[in-house]
Amino acid sequence: MMCNPDQVAVDADHVVTTDDFRTFFPEFCDATKYPGNLIVTYLQIGVQFVSISRWQQSWKLGACLFAAHELTMGTIATKAAATGVPGQATGIVSAKSVGPVSKSYDTSSAMFSDAGYFNLTTYGQRYWYFMRLFGTGGVQL
């Protein structure tokens, strides 16, 4: 098997590429903001968290969702660093006020009580949702 810097190979039959990632998530197509080597780094980690025997044909989606979550978390950290507080932990904003105007959101319907860190992005929430489905053998009650 040839070594390609734009792909992660689990074995000869299971390869995920930056093109696969960008096909699933075209919002990450800007190679300047989201370079291929960074995507590959997160895909390398993601394939370790996705059981091919459970996810089957959807395993690429799982690895890509994991990578998208991590890229988004990196973007959040970059924005925090721009304010002079790199690595600052934040939660999900459920209310915001500007002067006399305020707006709040009910985030409970979009969060999983046991997902913790993965609740911080929509990609993480989707990863968690599918992980739970595939982790239980595809049975949903």
Rank of each mutant, 00 (worst) to 15 (best):
M1G: 11
M2G: 11
M2D: 06
C3E: 15
P5G: 08
D6Y: 00
Q7L: 15
Q7M: 14
V8T: 13
V10P: 07
V10I: 15
D11K: 03
A12C: 07
H14T: 04
D19P: 06
F21W: 01
T23R: 09
F24S: 06
F24I: 09
E27Y: 03
D30C: 08
D30I: 01
K33G: 15
Y34T: 14
Y34K: 11
G36M: 06
N37Q: 10
Y42W: 13
L43Y: 05
L43D: 04
Q44T: 13
I45C: 11
I45L: 12
I45N: 07
G46A: 03
G46T: 05
V47Q: 01
V50R: 01
I52F: 06
S53R: 14
W55I: 00
Q56G: 06
Q57V: 10
W59V: 02
K60S: 02
A63M: 07
A63H: 05
C64Q: 03
L65P: 05
L65F: 02
F66T: 15
A68H: 06
A68G: 11
E70W: 01
E70D: 15
G74H: 09
G74K: 08
T75I: 03
T75H: 12
I76N: 09
A77V: 00
T78V: 02
A80Y: 04
G84I: 09
V85F: 03
P86T: 07
Q88T: 15
A89Y: 06
T90E: 10
I92E: 14
I92P: 13
I92K: 14
S94G: 13
S94K: 11
S97T: 14
S97N: 11
G99A: 14
G99V: 12
P100K: 15
V101M: 15
S102A: 14
K103H: 10
K103F: 14
Y105G: 07
D106W: 05
T107L: 12
S109P: 06
S109C: 02
A110S: 08
S113C: 13
S113E: 13
G116R: 11
G116V: 02
N119M: 02
L120S: 02
T121Y: 00
T121M: 02
Q125T: 11
W128A: 00
F130N: 05
V139E: 05
